[in-house]
């Protein structure tokens, strides 16, 4: 065994090398600290807690392996939770992203009252979700709510939006789309304004129609924005909770009990720490898989741009 040639390195040099090596760690340490304390540690802790039974009947945590998970997957109510979450994701994400793109394309030119329209579509984003949910709760009220007054104007029957198992989730989906479309529109507007002019001029010279330009130039060039916006939309959809708490309480008959709301209810209403931890782990895993897939996909796409 040979010793490293320490004798050649002076004390000052060693100090310098150590400093140079430590600098990057020093620079990321504040972030690392926060990520560890507020993200990594809670994730590990929740994974650990999910392996224990801890609820109203079992006050002292008892190791249970994957029992919390098997119980969840055998529970028909959990299947309903997954189903309504998936429906909500599949409905809000494509519609709000597509609507945002269309609005951005329409508003990305010069005409009168442009600022007014941009503001009108963006303002739902500025409202806190709790206020928005309270406003929509009133709009959906049978009898005097705005939505029903609108329906009756066209001689359509008034609906008990939040009191019907079929309509309650749709009512939340409409609110979700209304709330986030303006936000995504801003990203698309920014994306559109950052596009290179030369390719569009070339297309114009070649006599490409507006539809062709949009189809073959604008959309592919906006792919980065689309992926970013989609990621946010999916995360938003999974993290839907405020409006459920305010508008439906998960009802009627669990029709609007989505994943995060169900987690909140299991922990703070049922005081079931084990099951709530298992639900958290499931939520984290789903979001991790989605984000990782999206990240890999984005990396690959980036080379074509």
């Amino acid at each position: 065994m040979t010793l490293p040639p320490r004798a050649h390195v002076t004390r000052n040099e060693r100090r310098f090398r150590f400093g140079a090596a430590a600098l990057p760690y020093l620079l990321i340490s504040p972030t690392l600290l926060f990520v560890t304390v507020f993200t990594l540690w809670p994730s590990v802790r929740v994974l650990y807690d999910s392996l224990f039974l801890q609820n109203q009947a079992v006050q002292v945590p008892r190791f249970a392996g994957i029992e919390n998970y098997t119980a969840l997957f055998q529970d028909p109510a959990f299947r309903e939770v997954i189903a309504s979450t998936v429906i909500y994701v599949l409905a809000t994400v494509p519609v709000s992203v597509l609507l945002a793109l269309i609005l951005a394309l329409l508003l990305n030119r010069k005409f009168r009252a442009l600022g007014f329209y941009r503001l009108a579509f963006f303002y739902p984003t500025v409202l806190p979700m709790v206020s928005a949910a309270t406003i929509w709760l009133f709009m959906y009220t049978p009898g005097y709510g705005l939505v029903n007054v609108f329906l009756e104007f066209f001689h359509l029957p008034s609906q008990n939006w939040l009191g019907s198992t079929n309509l309650a989730l749709i009512a939340l989906i409409i609110l979700g789309i209304w709330k986030q479309t303006g936000y995504f529109m801003i990203f698309y507007l920014a994306g559109l304004q950052g596009l290179p002019h030369d390719v569009f001029e070339a297309a114009q010279l070649d006599g490409a129609s507006a539809i062709q330009t949009t189809r073959y130039l604008t959309l592919p060039l906006l792919m980065g924005t689309t992926l970013f916006v989609t990621t946010i939309a999916v995360v938003n959809a999974f993290e839907t909770v405020d409006q459920i708490y305010i508008m439906t309480g998960g009802g009627p008959n669990n029709a609007t009990a989505m994943l995060l709301f169900s987690l909140w209810q299991t922990l703070f209403s049922f005081l079931d720490v084990g099951t709530a931890s298992a639900l958290s782990v499931i939520l984290i895993v789903v979001l991790l898989i989605f984000t990782a897939t999206n990240f890999v996909y984005t990396e690959r796409r980036a080379t074509y741009e």
Binding site: N55, A57, F270
Partner: peptide, 22 residues
């Protein structure tokens, strides 16, 4: 009962399931 919130919800869900025709 014990685990009151959960038991109350179970009965409440049954009531809502019937009232919504499910």
């Amino acid at each position: 009962t014990h685990n009151n919130a959960q038991i109350q919800k179970i009965l409440g869900d049954a009531v809502q399931a019937v009232l919504t025709g499910k």
